[in-house]
């Protein structure tokens, strides 16, 4: 178990979290405009189409920007500092917030290539994180 805040999985996001449990990074892919987006939302943010398909992403990307947290986000993260919170730009285009898993904080940089890893924090919740590729 964990005392960290877990995602409150809902009807819209359940497939994403189910995919993560199976070691897949799923992204909404719009058949109308051919583009991916994240996080999932009812209307494609690019072309406003109502309806798209989940598609498995490559899990590859680069660090778009990052911070090293020296003060955690509340008591649940207190013992984890310092840790990296990053925005990763996925090869498919969308960006997502995540953690970079590394023993070498000095190696973290903008544009660093990364690949997805899956952290099963509970039976129900697996968080996609990234590590240097």
């Amino acid at each position: 178990m964990t005392n960290k805040p877990l995602p409150q999985i809902d009807v819209e996001t359940a497939p994403f979290w189910a995919g993560a449990r199976e070691g897949k990074l799923l992204l909404p892919h719009c058949g109308d405009c051919g583009r991916y987006h994240f996080y999932p939302r009812a209307l494609c943010p690019h072309c406003r189409a109502d309806g798209w398909q989940w598609a498995e992403a490559s899990g590859r990307g680069v660090i778009h920007t990052y911070t090293i947290a020296h003060r955690g986000a509340g008591p649940a993260f207190k013992d984890d500092v310092p840790y990296v919170v990053a925005i990763v730009e996925l090869a498919e285009g969308p960006r997502m917030m995540t953690n970079i898993v590394t023993d070498d904080l000095s190696g973290i940089a903008v544009d660093l290539p990364v690949r997805v890893v899956f952290d099963a924090v509970t039976d129900e919740v697996t968080l996609p994180k990234f590590e240097p590729a």
Binding site: P7, I9, Y39, A73, F77, M97, V125
Partner: peptide
Amino acid sequence: LDLQFETPWGMP
């Protein structure tokens, strides 16, 4: 909702 894609990663 949208914060489920932020809070779990410990964004301060």
